[in-house]
Structures are given as C-alpha cells and as structure tokens.
C-alpha cells in the first residue's frame, strides 16, 4: 500500500467525521502518515458533512482529497458530488438504504451495502457508519482490523465498543 486517499460524505449527524477519525487513528497505530480534514463552518450544521482521510507511507501532501482511491457516501447529494472524484479503478462504497440512484461510473469497483438495515440488526441505525467502515477496511486492507478495533477502544465511547465492533464485522463480512 502506497497511498490511500478517502472521502467520507453524508449528512451531519451520521458519524461521517468520526468514521474518518477512527480510520486515521488506526493508521497512526500502524505508523503510517495520516491526515484527517473535515468540511467546516455553518454549512456543517444540519447540512452535508464530509471529510478527507489520507493514509500513506510517504509524507502526506495536500490533506484535501480530490482524486480519491475510495469514496464512501451515505446520501444522494454526496453521491452526486463525489462519484466523479473516485480515481479509475478506485472503490465507491454506497449505503444503498439511503441512496436512491444507481452510480454511473463503470470504470470503478462499487459496493452497495444496506448499511441501515444491517446496523439495525446489530442494534442501532446510528452505527451504519461502522458497517461501511468495516467494508472499506476489508476491501482495501488499508489497515488491519485489529488496529481499527484498538482505535475504537482508545478513542470511542466505551459503552458502544461491542456494538461498533459487531457493526464493523458485519460490514467486513458483506464485503468479503
């Protein structure tokens, strides 16, 4: 793995920013160079939310991801905005419970996950972000699942750890 540049996008409140943070912490755990850069300002509140995460062997250049190796979207506006940002041969992960259109790209790999449904089965729709993150890690092998779990343990809320873990595993299973 040389350089993974990821965009997470959705509505505020879906856990978009924390998804990115946990991945960045996991990268740090593996001694990678990492950066996490959120959208900011009043637009965040209630509106769309996204963040750029980079994990790399080399020093990180721009923290703002434009050409993404992976894009994760949790709503339709995010798909509209970021579908074109996936590099050729890259990966697009879609929460198919929330996005009501088919992606147009044919030159990339696409995973459609009913993340809301899976999350609900695990215990709460609130952890749909973790389902998607699990799929991302499984598919890209960008970090080891242990590192991600360690990041969750150290930086997440303790009472959600088991639930989050399950959600990650279900997401990974789906992508396998």
């Amino acid at each position: 793995m040389a350089n993974q540049e990821i965009i997470f996008a959705g509505f505020g409140g879906q856990g978009i920013l924390s998804m990115g943070k946990f991945l960045a912490y996991a990268g740090l755990e593996e001694n990678l160079n990492v950066s996490w850069f959120p959208s900011y300002g009043p637009e965040m509140r209630g509106g769309t939310s996204n963040c750029s995460v980079i994990l790399s062997d080399e020093p990180v250049g721009s923290p703002l991801v434009v050409d993404a190796t992976t894009v994760v979207v949790m709503n339709r506006p995010s798909l509209d905005k970021f579908e074109s940002h996936v590099v050729k041969g890259g990966l697009l992960i879609i929460d198919s419970d929330l996005v009501n259109r088919e992606p147009e790209r044919t030159d990339i790999e696409i995973i459609k996950i009913p993340a809301q449904k899976i999350a609900e089965e695990v215990g709460s729709k609130k952890i749909a972000n973790m389902v998607l993150l699990g799929a991302l890690v499984e598919k890209t092998k960008i970090v080891k699942m242990e590192s991600l779990l360690k990041a969750l343990k150290e930086h997440g809320k303790e009472q959600f750890y088991e639930l989050n873990k399950k959600a990650l595993e279900r997401g990974a299973e789906f992508a396998r």
């Binding site: 943070k21 160079n33 990492v34 950066s35």
Partner: peptide, 10 residues
Amino acid sequence: DGMLGQMMEP
C-alpha cells in the same frame, strides 16, 4: 490557512 487549523495530523 483554514486547512491547517481544521485538519488532524499526528
């Protein structure tokens, strides 16, 4: 710039 203020890095 705002990027530096808002981004997280190790």
